[in-house]
Simulated assay, not measured.
Amino acid sequence: MLIAAFARESRLSVDAVRLYVRRGLLHPKLGAKGGSRPYHMFSALDIEKTRIIRAGQALRLSLKDVGTFINARSFKDDEGDVVITFLTTQREHLVQRIAESERLISYVDAKIAWLKDPSVGPSPPYPH
């Protein structure tokens, strides 16, 4: 499919698709038509890659890290260890971010309580 149809199918903007091509995350085939700017021909595999890109962005990965993961995958049913290692690492990062968020929520709650009634003691310290 051409870039506009691919953008619709993948629910990305045409500009985002072009960015992912420039960054090497997507590798469409170049069509014979289009002169000095040949058509990009995208496949179902490219749609799968956009799902991975979106998941990586949700995990707050850099596009470089997403690209490393995409390039390491074989896109076969038997990709095993690469995906398990990657997902395990990402899960550990999520757990760390959750713990940090919980510390910040506790701080904000304590700060709100202190602002409402400073007589409860000193202002709570910002978490480290």
Rank of each mutant, 00 (worst) to 15 (best):
residue 73 R to W: 09
residue 67 G to Y: 00
residue 21 V to M: 03
residue 67 G to W: 00
residue 114 W to D: 01
residue 70 I to D: 02
residue 12 L to W: 02
residue 84 I to Q: 13
residue 123 S to P: 05
residue 118 P to H: 11
residue 15 D to E: 11
residue 16 A to I: 00
residue 113 A to D: 11
residue 72 A to G: 13
residue 107 Y to T: 11
residue 50 T to S: 06
residue 19 L to M: 07
residue 101 S to E: 15
residue 115 L to A: 14
residue 57 Q to I: 10
residue 66 V to T: 03
residue 102 E to F: 02
residue 42 F to E: 02
residue 61 L to S: 07
residue 85 T to D: 15
residue 50 T to F: 09
residue 91 R to Y: 12
residue 90 Q to W: 05
residue 81 D to I: 11
residue 87 L to S: 13
residue 126 Y to F: 12
residue 39 Y to K: 10
residue 107 Y to R: 07
residue 46 D to N: 00
residue 77 D to M: 13
residue 32 A to I: 14
residue 19 L to V: 07
residue 97 R to N: 14
residue 63 L to E: 01
residue 62 S to L: 07
residue 33 K to A: 13
residue 60 R to T: 06
residue 63 L to I: 06
residue 28 P to N: 02
residue 120 V to L: 10
residue 82 V to F: 08
residue 15 D to N: 09
residue 34 G to A: 12
residue 72 A to S: 11
residue 63 L to R: 00
residue 30 L to W: 05
residue 102 E to A: 05
residue 76 K to D: 10
residue 24 G to S: 01
residue 91 R to W: 14
residue 122 P to Y: 03
residue 32 A to R: 14
residue 23 R to M: 04
residue 34 G to N: 05
residue 25 L to I: 03
residue 91 R to D: 12
residue 117 D to Q: 13
residue 7 A to E: 06
residue 77 D to C: 14
residue 67 G to F: 00
residue 115 L to D: 10
residue 99 A to H: 11
residue 75 F to A: 09
residue 101 S to L: 15
residue 96 Q to G: 08
residue 31 G to N: 04
residue 56 G to I: 08
residue 70 I to G: 01
residue 33 K to F: 11
residue 125 P to D: 01
residue 116 K to M: 09
residue 111 K to P: 02
residue 63 L to P: 02
residue 101 S to G: 15
residue 115 L to Q: 12
residue 103 R to D: 15
residue 64 K to L: 08
residue 111 K to S: 12
residue 26 L to Q: 01
residue 76 K to T: 13
residue 12 L to E: 05
residue 40 H to V: 05
residue 67 G to R: 00
residue 96 Q to Y: 04
residue 111 K to C: 05
residue 11 R to H: 09
residue 98 I to R: 04
residue 69 F to P: 00
